[in-house]
């Protein structure tokens, strides 16, 4: 039994990340990719993590899955999943933890399917390896799983190259939820897909989430997509969280200048055509302080309004 199913409805968080710091340690210098970040995800909650490339979003996801490789390592902080310390798990425990408790869909995951095995073989493999079902039973379940994401079970016999990008991505999502994990990590699940397919996949993730009740850590740089899907979200910059609140609150009243800039980087679909400046390249904020609560449930890193707005404006020219 997984954690979310036993504790569903309680306020016990499924995932609790506290003061996480991840450093990439080189011979001559080291970089802090994630700097003292804390957040938690409740049962059945969709939590979004937004920010541009290099802000540390994926590093957080990889730390949760314990996938960090040298030279990256967790310098401080704790990650607990359903009360268990993830950072202290042994290899055997990790084997169960990954996929069964926490599953992850990587960026351009559709290219991670094995090109020489059929979809059916790859999906059935999860059940034979992790759940110990017979081959026949595994294939039957694989067919059910594909139906869940609206792919014709006849496609079990297809090879990955015979499916479209969107279908492959849906197959990968189906594989991720195969063992009914209590947390699903989606790292830019729709970046390589066009807008129609993206919408279909997001709708399907929503449906699956409602049906199976797992929690989601959703990583993307597309603010509008995130606001649509997430309950709560956090905006990251330079390894720090600069703002966290209910998704809708961030959408209606973004308070940190970086959040405002990130939202302004997308041209709108309605209203007059106004010139946008986007985000300037390079580092704009330094020494971001810890979050402070400015409204119930709305935390923002304190900033010097005039100075930083000036920095953003100046750099945009």
């Amino acid at each position: 039994m997984t954690v979310s199913q036993t504790s569903f409805g309680s306020h016990e968080p499924v995932l609790d990340v506290k003061n996480l710091t991840v450093k990439y340690i080189g011979d001559t210098r080291s970089t802090t990719a994630v700097d003292n970040v804390s957040f938690s995800i409740g049962a059945g909650e969709v939590f979004g993590l937004a920010g541009e490339s290099g802000c540390g979003k994926s590093t957080i996801a990889n730390s949760i899955m314990r996938l960090l490789k040298d030279p990256a390592n967790v310098a401080a902080g704790s990650i607990s999943f359903g009360g268990k310390d993830v950072l202290a798990m042994s290899q055997d425990e990790l084997r169960r933890f990954r996929w069964q408790d926490v599953a992850m869909v990587f960026q351009s995951a559709m290219n991670s399917l094995n090109p020489v095995l059929t979809i059916g073989e790859q999906v059935a493999d999860i059940f034979t390896t992790h759940a110990g079902y017979s081959r026949k039973e595994s294939l039957r379940r694989a067919a059910q799983l594909l139906e869940l994401v609206r792919i014709d079970p006849a496609r079990l016999k297809s090879y990955p190259h015979q499916l479209s990008g969107g279908m492959r991505q849906r197959a990968v999502i189906a594989m991720a939820v195969a063992l009914k994990p209590s947390l699903l990590i989606l790292d830019e699940p729709t970046t390589a897909l066009d807008v129609v397919v993206q919408q279909e996949i997001m709708a399907q993730i929503k449906d699956l989430q409602r049906e199976l009740g797992f929690s989601v850590l959703f990583i993307t740089h597309d603010m509008s997509l995130m606001v649509e899907l997430s309950h709560r979200m956090a905006v990251m910059y330079g390894g720090r969280i600069v703002e966290t609140a209910k998704a809708h609150d961030i959408y209606t009243t973004p308070r940190h200048p970086y959040t405002q800039a990130l939202m302004g980087a997308f041209p709108p679909l309605t209203g007059p055509r106004v010139p946008l400046t986007g985000l300037p390249e390079g580092v704009k904020f330094h020494n971001i302080p810890d979050l402070a609560e400015v409204a119930p449930g709305h935390f923002v890193a304190p900033f010097d309004a005039d100075a930083e707005a000036g920095v953003l404006e100046g750099a945009a020219q």
Binding site: V195, V196, Q198, Q199, E200, M202, A203, D222, S224, L225, V227, E228, H248, Y251, L269, T270
Partner: peptide, 14 residues
């Protein structure tokens, strides 16, 4: 195509 564009202003309209 237009209805597929994520737009928080009409969230839940999918």
């Amino acid at each position: 195509l237009v209805s597929a564009v994520p737009d928080p202003a009409r969230a839940g309209s999918y």
